[in-house]
């Protein structure tokens, strides 16, 4: 639709049309914002996974540790081997990877998310400026109209 309409085009639109455009743009901005938030939480989770892997790879074999069963219940255990990890790659598939491959996986995913985030951020910023502009033009028009009817 008229997603890339410039200010000049907006000036020509009627108030109803502008309102519709503004609503549409606002909706899209919200959607994009949600997506950005989702990407952010996913990145945080992957960062935590990468940190955990790093931590694990630093521990020697046979190291005693407390394993969380729930958030408040820990049982003692020893580290058996830390060079093989299982990675959840989605849709129920898990892959056995070496420690280095696992770290590499996390890093790759984080990079992918980062590039997606940057792309999406640009789109969102553009949409936001369209929405803001539509709002401004709309306000100006309403003001003009009320001034014309009262005078």
């Amino acid at each position: 639709m008229a997603s890339s309409s410039s200010r000049g085009e907006m000036e020509k639109m009627g108030i109803d049309q502008l309102k519709a455009l503004k609503e549409q743009a606002d909706l899209e901005v919200n959607l994009l914002q949600d997506s950005l938030n989702n990407i952010r939480t996913a990145t945080v989770r992957l960062d935590a996974a990468a940190a955990a892997l790093n931590d694990l790879s630093l521990r020697p074999q046979g190291k005693k540790m407390l394993v969380p069963l729930t958030a408040s219940l820990y049982v003692p255990g020893t580290l058996d081997e830390a060079d093989k990890v299982l990675v959840d790659i989605g849709t129920g598939y898990f892959i056995e990877k070496t420690m280095d491959d696992g770290k590499d996986y996390c890093q790759r995913k984080i990079n992918l998310l980062k590039s997606n985030f940057d792309q999406l951020f640009e789109v969102a910023a553009k949409k936001k400026s369209v929405a803001d502009e539509a709002g401004m033009v709309l306000q100006a028009k309403v003001k003009q109209l009320t001034a014309a009817t009262t005078s």
């Binding site: 299982l86 790659i89 989605g90 598939y93 898990f94 892959i95 056995e96 990877k97």
Partner: peptide, 21 residues
């Protein structure tokens, strides 16, 4: 999601261990 999984599977060696939940 499936495409991401496929990409990941394609990267694997022939003898890699794959598990399904």
């Amino acid at each position: 999601e499936n495409e991401l999984v496929l990409k990941e599977l394609d990267l694997l060696e022939e003898d890699a261990n794959v598990y399904k939940l």
